[in-house]
Nucleic acid binder design. Structure first.
Lengths: 154, 154
DNA sequence: CACCAATAGTTCAATCTTAAACAATTCAAG
DNA sequence: CTTGAATTGTTTAAGATTGAACTATTGGTG
């Protein structure tokens, strides 16, 4: 994209980040999704299970915010996982608008079993970088993300 | 995700990159898509127009490879842009399996007019980083992407 | 208390995307 | 040449995702 574009240096370097960011994310996402399909999961389904696994029971809107998907989509995803018997909804008394989503024993066993495989797979995906590079990359991406989260709020 | 996960340092830093990469990409993608909607475009539609604008006429499979979407999806996207009168298909004589996609005068005028706005918008998105940081980030992401493209081939 | 805005979850229509099967064409080995 | 493999684009069915409208509930203000 930027290759044949005439602009200021800041515009050119920005376009290069933009392109490279999405190409890397798409490539990795595609690899990861193909892996998930073997376990019959989509990315967001895995995200919900993983969130509950590491953070405990969560309300639906918290999950939506965490995974950056719409509330309507969370309803859909939670429906699927509930049909699979991996999670359960529970209305909470303090605020009856909310559903608290929890892992069932089956779901808990499932995510605990498969998560280490995915952690190892992600480590392989990132093994093209050194430890220092991974830390630096995380730092830069966090800074970039923070800048753009603030922009949304405003 | 990595916050409550016990693993090797390489696994933890890898998970951190993974999470941060997708959060940043999703946040930015969402901002960008909202901007595109005002011009009645989706991300991939913009990608097709921009590719043709900067690279000249391209065959469909080249566009698919470049944008990392399926061939079937390119058929769909090109259909849409053709209905809008922004691009045209042309069968080429050297290989009659291929369609060469070109910008119409209307499409060419359109992308030439809106592209600078988006370049400026992307520069704003990336303005949370310094020039050096943008260059470093691009470098790291390219290295990461290259590693994972090779893996797909094998 | 009464009312109105804000919030949580659901539903629905529209759109996007993919994978797989298919037809047409090209290429390569014999 | 001819046959079989590979490639290009299209079609189709299935599924994912969003935004908007809707209901139920909560919270705050007068």
């Amino acid at each position: 994209m930027a290759t044949h574009f005439q602009g200021s240096p800041a515009e050119i370097s920005s376009l290069n980040v933009f392109i490279t960011l999405f190409r890397a994310a798409d490539t990795i996402q595609s690899r990861f999704a193909r892996h998930l399909r073997r376990d019959g999961l989509t990315g967001p389904q895995f995200g919900v299970l993983e969130s509950l696994h590491h953070l405990g029971p969560l309300e639906q809107h918290v999950i939506a915010e965490k995974l950056l998907v719409s509330r309507g989509n969370i309803t859909f995803i939670v429906d699927k996982l509930e049909q699979l018997g991996l999670i359960a909804r529970a209305v909470i008394t303090e605020d009856r608008r909310c559903n608290r989503v929890t892992l069932t024993p089956k779901g808990s066993e499932f995510i605990a079993r498969i998560f280490p495989e995915y952690a190892a797979y992600i480590a392989e995906i990132m093994s093209g970088l050194t430890e220092d590079e991974r830390l630096a990359l995380t730092c830069l991406l966090k800074k970039l993300g923070k800048h753009n989260n603030q922009e949304i709020a405003s």
